[in-house]
């Protein structure tokens, strides 16, 4: 059994950030997925979704669910990331002081995503865009707890 969902994200529209997370959360609740897994997934997805809104012109979120896991792919059209390794460091941020003052850009985003996903893969091409892949397993026993 496989289910596929697609959502689009508008760059710069902060008021709509979180809409996809909300939809995915509802789906997982209906599927009776373990609450802790739902929480992890939604936290990771929300971070990633906000990243598209904050940094890219727009993007698509593809969600695939089967009996074992959820696979989320966030593809955006945007500036891309130069040094992915560096973005994983806690506190690293490209955000301007103004953005930081608004409460964003603390440099916690990617590490937060990493902590809340079983697998996090980021590929990027500078000047084109970024693709973030998040995989979470529904059963806690196989690397569900990080």
């Amino acid at each position: 059994m496989q289910m596929h969902f697609e959502y689009s994200v508008e760059g710069g529209n902060f008021s709509q950030a979180g809409l996809t997370s909300s939809q995915v959360k509802k789906t997982l609740k209906q599927l009776n997925v373990n609450g802790a897994v739902i929480k992890r997934t939604v936290v990771a997805l929300y971070e990633a979704e906000v990243n598209i809104v904050a940094h890219a012109y727009g993007g698509t979120i593809l969600v695939d669910i089967d009996e074992e896991k959820i696979v989320i792919e966030l593809r955006d059209e945007g500036p891309g990331i130069e040094d992915i390794g560096k973005t994983m460091e806690i506190g690293y941020s490209t955000a301007t002081p103004e953005v930081r003052e608004m409460g964003f850009g603390a440099g916690m985003g990617l590490s937060n995503m990493n902590n809340n996903s079983d697998l996090l893969e980021i590929t990027s091409e500078v000047g084109k865009g970024t693709c973030v892949k998040i995989i979470n397993h529904f059963k806690d026993d196989n690397n569900g707890n990080k």
Binding site: M3, L31, N32, D66
Partner: peptide, 10 residues
């Protein structure tokens, strides 16, 4: 939840 069993729920 639609079903206790994930496959059924899907």
């Amino acid at each position: 939840k639609l079903d206790d069993n994930l496959a059924e729920a899907m």
